[in-house]
């Protein structure tokens, strides 16, 4: 299994991994804000009402979920593209 790494440019590998770490960090920060920060300040957010939804409640019931779905697809598409950019994509079978 180890052999496959040979012949790969270590510079590129490092750049690929640091890109991944950055994207992961971004994802986790957004995740943290919509879940914990929004939940913590729910009372303050509830003073905004849209379509009858107090905003804090809405974030818990739907808003955070929509952001989660977006976050995962965003991560997936960016990483899938990065695989090709850094030349670490899987071989087609």
């Amino acid at each position: 299994m180890v052999q496959e790494l040979k012949g790969l440019d270590t510079e590129k590998l490092r750049a690929y991994w640091s890109y991944n770490v950055k994207l992961t960090t971004f994802t986790m920060v957004v995740w943290f804000v919509v879940t914990y920060v929004c939940s913590y300040f729910v009372k303050e957010l509830n003073s905004i009402v849209i379509f009858g939804f107090p905003f804090g409640y809405y974030m818990g019931a739907q808003g955070s979920l929509i952001v989660f779905v977006w976050l995962i697809f965003n991560y997936a598409f960016k990483m899938n593209k990065a695989d090709n950019t850094y030349g670490v994509e899987e071989e087609e079978e």
């Binding site: 992961t24 994802t27 986790m28 995740w31 818990g60 989660f68 976050l71 995962i72 991560y75």
Partner: peptide, 23 residues
């Protein structure tokens, strides 16, 4: 509102799964 913790908890875990484990 407090019951929404289940809604958030049981979905937000997939973000962790997506970036830390799945691939």
């Amino acid at each position: 509102y407090d019951g929404l913790s289940y809604v958030m908890g049981w979905t937000g875990g997939y973000v962790l799964l997506a970036v830390f484990l799945g691939p």
